[in-house]
Nucleic acid binder design. Structure first.
Length: 423
RNA sequence: GGAGGCGUCGCAUAGUGGUCUAGUGCACCACCUUGGAAAGGUGGCAGGCUCGAAAGGGUCUCGUGAGUUCAAAUCUCACCGCCUCCGCCA
């Protein structure tokens, strides 16, 4: 959500931003509705003012005089009810329109329609040359009996999976590795956050109403979060933060659930696209300055890269084009890791900043050095998501005989250096 | 799942239909006093919307929302949260 004053004063910039993002929103209509809102508000305030004044008089009036004024007040009240009704109607539309106004993309964001137009900005390590035809993680893991997709589907349905034996151990290892890595780095508070979350926080982070269909909903009307970002941002909802604590950094762990409604034909096999996975997410709240946002955005991106480099996986970083940005995002980098079986890079991390788009919706503020209340800035990036990254490691570390080397940094956690057939 | 209680300005509390534009204490800030501090004194101490060049004004918010009333912190209903007891339970 943007500030209505800002929208009114910068309508052209916002329209251009929306056009760049290929998002429909009727700013002119919003401004007309806002005019109406102000007008009715003023008219209602005058009536309320009169009511307050006359109500005080009634107390001291007696008998006939009192009854007379009460009757007058009943008429005034009817008029107020009418104004209130109109205001309520206008506010419904106002709210709806406000939720459709996208944040303005950064100057550095390239134009484009979809992820096909994202631009590579960095490439690390050359893509490994296998002296044999690399297998997919599905083949490898099934052969090693460390994943079971058939039973996954039997039990959990489409996209269901079991990880067993060394795949389970490798997953735990990755979790412990990433946690240790961030604890060592310092500054991040590790958290385990809810996945079962109420609507408010989804609204606040911008997943609802636009992407509602990709969320699972319970019969008690909570939703299952597709990322720990939702609960982590909700954590400080309706709070006034102490600016001395900035930047506030969290490393949030949670199970994640996604319906993948818009991806029916895609990645129908394996661990790349599943309904249920686990993710460590970096979330930052900082002072309301563009420079700070940019600084932490680069930092969050670098943190993820550092981790991938330790795992020695080839990757590249792309800057997302305007058409591939979400409603609230100002700028986004995706980190994509090499997937040997597909011969292409696959997204493993998504790093974005929002300025005060989310914090305005969530009402997360702080007092600046002048004592003025401001909405904080928010950012987030994946730290590590399994099993997608597990699949990538398996494929990159496969050997000709079908065994899997364990990445050096994970050996202490897994307790072995080779994953081979156990049974 | 059952029974009962509670939610007021950062904290603690007062307030059961109209002088509540919510009182008091603590904390906090400024000033006075002091060599400096404490104590004491004086003043300040919410946010949203809105009118205004400003000074200042109007309005809304006592968990949230709806309702009753000329008038609601106070009465009614729903929801959210917390507490106590019983039952169940990893």
């Amino acid at each position: 959500m943007l500030d209505i004053h800002f929208i009114r004063e910068n309508a052209d910039i916002i329209k251009a931003g929306a056009a760049k993002k290929h998002i429909d929103c009727d700013i002119d209509r919003l401004i007309r509705v806002d005019d109406e809102r102000k007008l009715i508000r003023q008219e209602l305030d005058i009536k309320r003012s009169e009511q307050n004044r006359r109500s005080n008089e009634i107390q001291v009036l007696k008998d006939k005089e009192r009854e007379k004024v009460i009757v007058q007040m009943q008429h005034l009240k009817a008029g107020m009810a009418e104004s209130e009704e109109r205001l309520k109607k206008v506010m419904v539309e106002w709210q709806q329109l406000m939720l459709t106004v996208p944040n303005i993309p950064d100057m550095s964001v390239p134009d484009g329609d979809s992820d096909a137009d994202n631009m590579e900005v960095k490439k690390w390590d050359t893509v490994p040359e296998f002296s044999f035809v690399p297998k997919s993680h599905v083949e490898l893991m099934t052969a090693l009996d460390i994943a079971d997709f058939e039973r996954g589907a039997k039990v959990a349905g489409f996209r269901g999976y079991f990880l067993k034996g060394d795949a389970a151990l490798l997953s735990y290892a990755l979790w412990q590795f990433i946690s240790d890595h961030f604890v060592k780095k310092g500054g991040f508070t590790p958290m385990i956050v809810p996945s079962l979350v109420r609507r408010e926080s989804f609204m606040g982070t911008g997943y609802v109403p636009q992407s509602e269909e990709d969320l699972y909903k319970t019969q008690d009307s909570e939703y299952l979060a597709g990322t720990g970002e939702v609960a982590t941002m909700g954590y400080h909802m309706n709070e006034i933060l102490d600016a001395k604590q900035f930047p506030i950094k969290y490393l949030s762990f949670s199970p994640c659930f996604r319906r993948e409604i818009g991806a029916h034909g895609k990645d129908t096999k394996g661990l790349v696209r599943v309904h249920e996975f686990y993710k460590f997410e970096q979330v930052v709240l900082c002072e309301a300055s563009h420079e700070a946002s940019v600084k932490y955005h680069e930092e969050l991106t670098a943190n993820a890269e550092e981790m991938i480099q330790l795992l020695k996986i080839p990757y590249h970083v792309v800057i997302n084009c305007s058409g591939d940005l979400g409603l609230g995002q100002v700028k986004k980098y995706d980190i994509e890791c090499w997937m040997p079986s597909e011969g292409k890079y696959r997204e493993t991390h998504s790093s974005s900043y929002f300025h005060d788009f989310q914090t305005r919706r969530l009402n997360i503020r702080y007092r600046d050095e002048n004592g003025e209340l401001k909405f904080a800035h928010s950012l987030n990036n994946t730290a590590l998501a399994t099993p997608r990254l597990l699949a990538i490691i398996i494929e990159n570390y496969q050997q000709q005989d079908g065994t899997i080397k364990v990445p050096d940094v994970l050996v202490p956690y897994v307790g072995k250096s080779i994953i081979s057939f156990a049974g």
